[in-house]
Design a binder for these strands. Structure first.
Length: 870
RNA sequence: GGGAGCUUAGCUCAGCUGGUUCAGAGCACCUGCCUUACAAGCAGGGGGUCACUGGUUCGAACCCAGUAGCUCCCA
């Protein structure tokens, strides 16, 4: 059979993924085994796969696949969240294309379209994860808005409300005029922008006297109801008790005084617009000045503004500056930089706005559930990297109430019901609400209550995810939740810590009395080579799907995993994927080699020597690597684990072991030797499998004779205990030395060498005699002292090398001299220690012994080198 | 403005309880090779005042203080 020298992953990956699914290899059902559970951070249902997902899900798959091989009952639950703002925006856009305005249809009609949209596009990202090789239990796929998960959300709302942990209040919220909804603080991104500071005169009535106010938002002056200065500011004391006229609207407002005002900033006077600034709002309440909301919910000027009605706020800003200048109210404009909040979803500038919203009282919540903080601080829940505990601690200790209502239709509708006067009850259905209402307000005349128009924040669904995916609310004692909860590991990005990680911990303790997971692995952010975050708008994010088509999912996974320690950003570059592809190809060619060997049953000398020596050497390396890889996994150091495997396969297996086992050209290999080679290869594939699931499956399957036993069901490799390492390193160093000397002197690799080694112990060299001859192209090795040829050292052994037909031009002494110089310096530093009284007094005895040994070694080495020099 | 973290080779990063198995890895780079598994390869090689300045110590990349620069979080 002819196997191509280039590995082509595409068909192989498609073939295996289909087989895995057909054979339900990722299915998990509770049984007697130890469970290992991961719930996927549900990707946004509107999303398509980007590099961040690739990294995040590769990591999860690596963890899950290894756990499965360790004999655990591994369960990776996939799913998506309903992403209310993003999805609603998509649906609104889709309707617009059809010529339908959201305003013109009913809520139910809109939801009909939304579900239609979800059914059509909502599964795309999950299909893409399959290309990546993700071993999710697809039969468990959940969606945050499916009936049972929605019911859990509503029940939790009602429950928290009854416990007094949820309240409705008037608050200044972050208003997104594009999404037309309130956002939580976490959904606002502050960016530094170039702004202007406008200096505006507010005249005292019937006077030329005026107060100068500096503001970046002149359009809000239509809502001004006071101006405020610091009471200690001498400049403004004369205005005590006076009023001023707000320009344009000609409203007379009081001059008030408060310590809050910074006399140093701007002119030392603030205009007070309680409806549109949180600080103004607080001052407004304190000084009892009214509030005028001069904006509509889409960011245009409202009727209440009185002027520029219907114009957009930014257009008004320009216009009002012009108008103020014309009327002589504008003193000057000054360029400044300030921070402005933007909506994470719509990128619209956030408008602070007062509105009635539902909140979770976080202070109370934390008082009930101190474990939310404690469990992380005492490592019951471990963060990787642990430095992120600080951030968590800081956020939890300074936590703010959580605004959970959103002015949207796509989401779980808030189960609150109002009568005409605004009296409120919270209940699951209208019927229950009415009953409750009649009892609570002792009013049986009212037969109709109106449900709150708003829906709940998407995170108010996802925070229940580790419980709700196992139906832990609907059926709290069911087999799944009892078996899989608490889950093991959560893999997510650091920016999700507050949105999700913290809140899952909160819900876990409140509703299960237990943590939701034991480990949180924070991935980095995927950036481009210039450290810019990959984003659609920058266009610097490669499309993962064609990339996987071209290089293979394995290569992409490898490329991402090689350079992404926990918590570190990954600077993605296609060259990393190339490295992954090259690695696949390397493995593929080793496979070609092994599969191409003819076998014999005649035991040759070659087999008996190499079979033992090479095998023993390789087994030793494999044992060591398995231990290291396991240690790295235990510490979630996945890229280090991969690197150990990479070097084990490329360097130890391909460059050394296979070269040793390879029979002389044209000869067959002994069938027992081939069995050994295949055994090693097969174990290597098992080690590699979590990282590169496809090629490891393909090759293992080939090595075992296409029996389709599935690597995913095989055991994670274990150390073979009775391997006694034999001392070979000198022989390997000798090979390197001989190759080196050739290189240094420009001698062709084809020129054979004649080597003399002067040593006390020839056994190590003798056992690898043929290996050395083959790998270093040596004609003959003897063990007598020779004065001819190039000189070198292998540890304490002197080596002389001649190359047949090559004339040595001059004595090769510089290398030796360098070595002597280095050792002399080294010796000196050791002697300094050993003659230092304090060192001798303080250092541990075994350290002193070590130093003495080093001294002796160095001395004897120097001696030998001097002799060589002559 | 408040808090946290980082600074080690050209790049991305390891470096545990201080002690020449500690100055490392991968990539990139340079040299020589189309050696019959693999040029997506083989054999070699050169790169670092461990940000800076002090201190502690017999001994510091590692501990302490200060300085500079960068990043993130919160306001």
């Amino acid at each position: 059979m002819e196997i191509s020298s280039k590995y082509s992953p595409k068909d192989i990956e498609t073939k295996w993924y289909k087989e895995w699914l057909d054979n339900k290899l990722f299915r998990s059902i509770p049984d007697h085994r130890e469970p290992y559970t991961i719930v996927i951070p549900p990707p946004n249902v509107t999303g398509v796969l980007h590099m961040g997902h690739m990294l995040n899900n590769t990591i999860q798959d690596v963890l899950v696949r290894r756990a499965r091989m360790l004999g655990k009952n591994a369960c990776w639950v996939p799913g998506t969240d309903h992403a209310s703002i993003a999805t609603e925006a998509k649906v609104v856009a889709m309707l617009k294309e059809k010529g339908i305005e959201k305003k013109s249809i009913s809520r139910d009609e809109f939801l009909g379209y939304a579900w239609e949209w979800k059914e059509k596009y909502g599964g795309i990202i999950l299909e893409q994860l399959k290309k990546l090789g993700c071993s999710c239990d697809w039969d468990r796929t959940r969606f945050t808005m499916e009936p049972s998960l929605s019911e859990a959300v509503i029940d939790v709302f009602i429950d928290l409300h009854s416990k007094g942990l949820i309240y409705r209040g008037s608050r200044m919220v972050n208003w997104d005029p594009a999404g037309k909804t309130a956002l939580s603080d976490e959904e606002v991104i502050y960016k530094e922008v170039d702004s202007k500071l406008y200096y505006i005169k507010y005249f005292v009535p019937d006077s030329d006297e005026y107060i100068m106010v500096a503001t970046t938002r002149p359009e809000t002056l239509l809502g001004d109801t006071a101006v405020c200065a610091n009471p200690n500011d001498e400049r403004y004391k004369k205005f005590i008790g006076k009023t001023v006229i707000v320009p344009i609207v000609n409203r007379e407002v009081p001059v008030i005084f408060d310590e809050y005002v910074d006399a140093e900033f701007g002119t030392g006077v603030l205009k007070i617009t309680p409806a549109h600034d949180i600080n103004d709002y607080n001052l407004g309440i304190k000084h009892n000045v009214p509030s005028i909301d001069c904006f509509n919910d889409d960011g245009t000027m409202s009727e209440a503004a009185g002027f520029y009605i219907g114009m957009d706020r930014f257009a008004v800003r320009k216009q009002i500056a012009k108008d103020l200048a014309e009327s002589g109210h504008l003193e000057k404009e000054e360029a400044i930089k300030n921070k402005v909040g933007y909506s994470e979803r719509t990128d619209a500038v956030i408008e602070p706005r007062i509105s009635k919203q539902w909140f979770v009282d976080m202070k109370k919540y934390m008082a009930r559930n101190p474990e939310v903080l404690d469990s992380v601080m005492n490592d019951e829940i471990q963060f990787y990297p642990s430095k992120l505990k600080n951030t968590y601690n800081h956020w939890i200790t300074n936590i703010k109430d959580w605004c959970i209502s959103r002015q949207l239709w796509w989401g779980q509708r808030i189960p609150a019901w109002y009568d005409e006067q605004g009296n409120t009850v919270v209940a699951k259905t209208h019927e229950e609400a009415l009953e409750l209402y009649q009892k609570q307000f002792n009013n049986s005349a009212v037969k109709q209550l109106n449900q709150d128009e708003d829906v709940l924040d998407t995170w108010f669904s996802s925070w229940l995810w580790p419980i709700s995916v196992f139906d832990g609310f609907k059926d709290p004692d069911n087999a799944d939740i009892n078996y899989y909860y608490p889950t093991n590991d959560l893999v997510t990005a650091p920016e999700i810590m507050f949105f999700w990680v913290a809140r899952m911990i909160m819900s876990g303790y409140e509703y299960k009395g237990q943590k939701p997971f034991s480990n949180v692995y924070y991935t980095g952010i995927v950036r481009d080579k210039l450290r810019r975050k990959m984003s659609k708008s920058l266009g610097n994010s490669p499309d993962p799907l064609p990339m996987m088509d071209e290089y293979g999912a394995d290569a992409v996974r490898m490329g991402m995993m090689l350079c992404s320690p926990a918590g570190n950003d990954i600077l993605f570059d296609i060259s990393q994927v190339e490295q992954g592809r090259n690695f696949s190809n390397k493995i593929w060619n080793a496979y070609r080699l092994v599969m191409g060997w003819e076998t014999t049953q005649t035991a040759t000398e070659y087999y008996s020597i190499y079979g033992f020596v090479a095998q023993n050497w390789m087994e030793t390396k494999l044992n060591k690597a398995i231990i290291e890889v396991n240690e790295h996994f235990d510490k979630f150091r996945l890229s280090d684990a991969l690197m150990v495997i990479y070097k084990l396969i490329w360097d130890d297996f391909c460059s050394w072991y296979l070269e040793m086992m390879k029979p002389p050209y044209g000869d067959p290999i002994h069938d027992k030797a081939l069995v050994q080679v295949k055994s090693v290869f097969e174990r290597l594939m098992r080690l590699l499998h979590p990282f590169m699931p496809f090629i490891s499956e393909e090759i293992r399957d080939g090595l075992l004779g296409n029996i389709h036993s599935y690597i995913n069901k095989s055991k994670w490799p274990e150390c073979i205990p009775d391997i006694k390492p034999v001392f070979y390193e000198n022989s390997f160093e000798l090979i390197t030395l001989i190759r080196n000397k050739r290189n240094e002197n420009g001698i062709s690799p084809k020129t054979p060498a004649i080597v003399s080694v002067s040593t006390d112990d020839t056994s190590g060299y003798k056992s690898l005699y043929d290996v050395i001859r083959k790998l270093a192209n040596v004609e003959v090795i003897d063990f007598i002292k020779s004065s001819k040829g190039l000189k070198g050292m292998v540890n304490k052994d002197e080596v002389s090398i001649e190359y047949i037909g090559w004339e040595m031009k001059q004595a090769d002494s510089s290398e030796l001299q360098k070595e002597i110089d280095y050792l002399t310096g080294f010796l000196k530093s050791i002697e300094a220690k050993l003659t230092n009284e304090k060192f001798m007094a303080n250092a541990k005895p075994d350290l002193i012994d070590k130093e003495r040994q080093k001294k002796a070694d160095a001395e004897s080495k120097i001696e030998t080198l001097r002799q060589q020099l002559g």
